[in-house]
């Protein structure tokens, strides 16, 4: 049981990087970006292929990050320069990436068993594979949280936030909103691909299917984090995202442990997210009900 929780935490830390990427588009830019479904698998594909062919795993991971940024760039250009609605632009890139990822790997999945990954140096120090993933994940997540906290406090970071908040106002303050949207998508998908590359290395294989449903997992983690751990300020938000991603993984691990068939997992996640997203609607129904139950004034 304890092992399952530890495994969930280590996996959650890797997914936290992806969750932060989803947060940048979904909350900061106010765009539901479906590119992530393709870019997470792309990160895995690039890292797996490069490592399999003898590249240093750290360089391969950086390459995956760059690949994800390119995917974000494509979606950004489709959306801003070619005026394709954001949702559709993301879907187009996602579909295109399916073929691209197959090209990269040459086949539908690639095994990394008994090949050195970014986690190997830590394992050589005597850590168990799970602990190595957890330590590496923790350090990477904290570094990313720190970097993003700094970045979104800079002039450019503030301009991205203003663009997501009120594009009309942003333009009136001289901000090139198109470039800010592209930049946000680039950073977001870079992080998502980085997460994908680390997940592939931790589970020792990359699979063309691994992106399916990842946007929903990302959203579930964002919402769980925000609801349970709060959104007082930006730093608090970032930490909440990390904790949300971990919590999601723990919930899934427990549900599977309790005997839910793994094939039903996506249905379970989708229902969870649907309920979480519709909470505000339920609240408006519940408030008058509560009021009448308490017998009047509140």
């Amino acid at each position: 049981m304890f092992d399952i929780i530890l495994g969930a935490i280590s996996l959650g830390l890797l997914w936290a990087i992806m969750t932060i990427g989803v947060y940048i588009t979904y909350r900061i830019l106010d765009i539901a970006d479906l590119t992530v479904e393709g870019s997470i698998a792309m990160g895995a594909a690039i890292a797996a292929f490069s490592i399999f062919n003898g590249m240093n795993p750290f360089i391969a991971t950086c390459l995956a990050f760059v690949g994800g940024m390119l995917a974000g760039l494509v979606t950004g250009i489709l959306h801003t320069k070619l005026k394709i609605p954001a949702l559709l632009a993301g879907i187009l890139t996602m579909i295109a990436l399916y073929s691209v990822n197959l090209r990269i790997m040459g086949k539908a999945n690639l095994s990394l068993l008994r090949i050195d990954t970014v986690f190997t140096p830590l394992e050589n120090l005597g850590l168990s594979p799970t602990n190595a993933v957890m330590l590496f994940g923790f350090i990477s997540v904290m570094a990313i949280v720190g970097l993003l906290y700094w970045f979104f406090g800079t002039e450019i970071g503030c301009a991205i936030r203003a663009t997501g908040d009120n594009p009309q106002m942003a333009r009136a303050q001289g901000i090139n909103t198109n470039n800010m949207i592209i930049l946000g998508l680039v950073i977001s998908n870079g992080l998502v691909a980085l997460s994908g590359s680390l997940i592939a290395q931790s589970q020792s294989f990359a699979d063309i299917q691994m992106g399916i449903g990842s946007i929903v997992i990302g959203l579930a983690s964002v919402i769980i984090g925000e609801v349970i751990f709060g959104t007082r300020n930006f730093f608090n938000c970032l930490i909440s995202l990390v904790l949300g991603a971990i919590t999601y993984r723990i919930i899934i691990a427990l549900v599977l442990k309790m005997g839910m068939p793994a094939n039903d997992l996506k249905l379970f996640t989708a229902i969870t997210v649907a309920i979480a997203l519709s909470l505000p609607v339920f609240k408006t129904y519940l408030r008058p009900l509560k009021k009448s139950l308490r017998g009047g004034d509140l």
Binding site: T154, E155, A159, Q173, I175
Partner: peptide
């Protein structure tokens, strides 16, 4: 944001 209108935005605070 308004104070930086017309200025190139950088990575300074």
């Amino acid at each position: 944001l308004a104070y930086r209108r017309g200025k190139t935005r950088s990575l300074s605070w």
